[in-house]
Design a protein around this nucleic acid. Structure first.
Lengths: 332, 332
DNA sequence: GAGCTTCGGGAAATCGATTTCCCACACTCT
DNA sequence: AGAGTGTGGGAAATCGATTTCCCGAAGCTC
């Protein structure tokens, strides 16, 4: 029992392949409704599935988009990939997700693999603002590429990101409003545009002599290191803004172990609003990205004219989500 | 500037398409080494990438496998998908991951989408032992399908799973060895084979009158509900085995909020050994799945002869990972 | 009713790589 | 030297759906 082909459906319905294709692919619907019904009926009866390889070969499009994220170990990127997947599926496509293991070299490899004729377009969350550019630029020469959540220098394409400066202002204003004055920053991964922008915005607002802890990577373990440093300087600090949720998680757990009360003594905020935050004790205040909107827009850019993908950065508005780690009165 | 085709490479190297294909696809290497070098050189110079749609159409294989997991909101399934992805990539293929949103109906849909000529084979972590069977059986009629981590009734195919009964014994023996006698179980999702097997193994070992909390789903929130129930009955319990890590996370956080010390008053174990466990306070004892081995074996079954995929369940040995949630002496 | 426009639908070319034949050439053996 | 053997490589068929032409029929106008 070999799989039925379009030819078989056409024969069963008593029409030509051309007509069957027009009906099933939904191209210019100038087909007699009666014939159309016969074709659809035949297709159903035979259990016909269109062969996507053949379609892709003929049309030159695969209906698949790829996304390369820095690391799936960070739940924020899982959430991000999921938001993109939903938009892609809603449009009848498929998403392929690749993990760059936080390395620009592996990232370049993954981009290359995905580009080998398997995807119509590519969304990339670049690992590094400086080092990811060349690979992205090369890819953008072959297929539509849009950067997502972060940008890279000299990438040759558009980036759909969060307005990190506005987000930082939201957090600082919020803490200010609660009477916190000695605000520290825990920043990570200065190589990424988001890490760098968040640090820059903080410094712009609070001056260069505010307490700042710089860490190499966005991981919970880095957050614990930060927790130890902050605990040592607890006298100078009454609030900590973390550049990522995973940092905040590690930080809070370490602070609590050092008998620093959160938010009593030190208020803490995250960044990215991953789902795990609500489940901690206390739940952590964070910044929510409008991921669905961003994904929708990025996909539109992928499919739109190349002119819309000129190198530039588009920034979406962040949203502050207040939880008990800054304001104990908020119900958990 | 249109993308170079095999024809262009062949012309540039002064050979026929056939020879160029033999060289680049690596089929029967009866090609003069000198010609081969010329072809490879030409391909590199022109920046040739083989068109996977065309190859797939001709060979009938896509080099892609799909995996359907119950929910990517559960970090265990992210880890599982990642383990499979690594094996697939090592073999030069691609992985497409789909999320069934914990619903057999959506699961059936995702299976159907993936099967439409886009994947060579399918790995499924079935949502439900009872309800997932029919869709899997239908899929197994069209393409190689292997169940992973869980099995389903009447699926018509082989399942590569963990030996849940052995895992439960490891946990109970460990707790026993620590002098814990009043052991409770927090079990979830009896509809899944893993949920059901873990409950059955616990009941077999401890008898039906041991304290047992049954929950609908594997989520952290369910874990908090369990935490409240256990806290109410704290006098009857000195250890809790959770059927999944996400449950343990919610449980521990709720117990601590109720001033129950872990492991002082109640020891807690998880199940699945997701990475987040090390980061909690205390880190949680759990069961590690040999995911890499399981993935390798499952992929071998996918590619092997259909006879090897007769309906059956293969069980891999679990490994106990002891952390401070059961044994305070273990360094965190 | 002749001529013109529409419109539905069929025949066949097309997408690009793979693979089956099969030929030509070189080399070995008697 | 002639026949036999093996091997590298080219011409062309093939995978299955889409899409461009193009033709015939039906509807319309005057």
């Amino acid at each position: 029992m070999t799989a039925p082909r379009l030819l078989d459906v056409a024969a069963a319905a008593g029409v030509s392949r051309a007509t069957a294709s027009r009906v099933l692919a939904g191209t210019p619907r100038n087909v007699d409704p009666d014939l159309a019904r016969r074709v659809e009926e035949a297709a159903r009866r035979l259990g016909y599935r269109t062969n996507h390889s053949a379609r892709a070969l003929r049309t030159g499009t695969t209906g698949t988009v790829g996304v390369v994220v820095p690391s799936l170990a960070n739940p924020y990127f899982v959430q991000l990939a999921d938001a993109i997947a939903q938009q892609v599926r809603a449009a009848g496509g498929q998403l392929v997700v690749s993990d760059a293991a936080n390395s620009p070299a592996i990232e370049a490899e993954q981009i290359d693999t995905l580009l080998s004729g398997r995807v119509d377009g590519l969304l990339v969350v670049p690992v590094s603002a400086a080092a990811s550019g060349p690979a992205v630029r090369a890819a953008a020469g072959c297929a539509p590429v849009v950067l997502f959540d972060r940008w890279a220098h000299d990438s040759g394409t558009v980036a759909v990101t969060l307005d990190n400066a506005a987000a930082m202002r939201l957090l600082l204003d919020h803490l200010d409003g609660l009477g916190r004055r000695r605000i520290a920053l825990v920043a990570a991964d200065q190589a990424s545009s988001s890490g760098a922008e968040r640090l820059a915005a903080f410094t712009a607002a609070r001056g260069a002599d505010a307490v700042t802890v710089l860490l190499p990577s966005f991981t919970t373990d880095a957050g614990r290191t930060a927790g130890r440093r902050i605990a040592e300087r607890r006298a100078e600090v009454d609030a900590v803004v973390c550049g990522a949720d995973v940092l905040a998680v590690g930080l809070v757990s370490t602070l609590q172990r050092s008998a620093v009360s959160v938010p009593g003594e030190i208020a803490v905020t995250g960044f990215d609003d991953t789902e795990m935050l609500e489940l901690l004790d206390p739940p952590i205040t964070s910044i929510r990205h409008p991921l669905a909107d961003m994904a929708e827009h990025a996909l539109a850019l992928l499919q739109g004219p190349p002119a819309d993908r000129a190198e530039s950065v588009e920034r979406f508005p962040p949203q502050l989500v207040v939880r008990a780690s800054t304001d104990a009165d908020v119900s958990p």
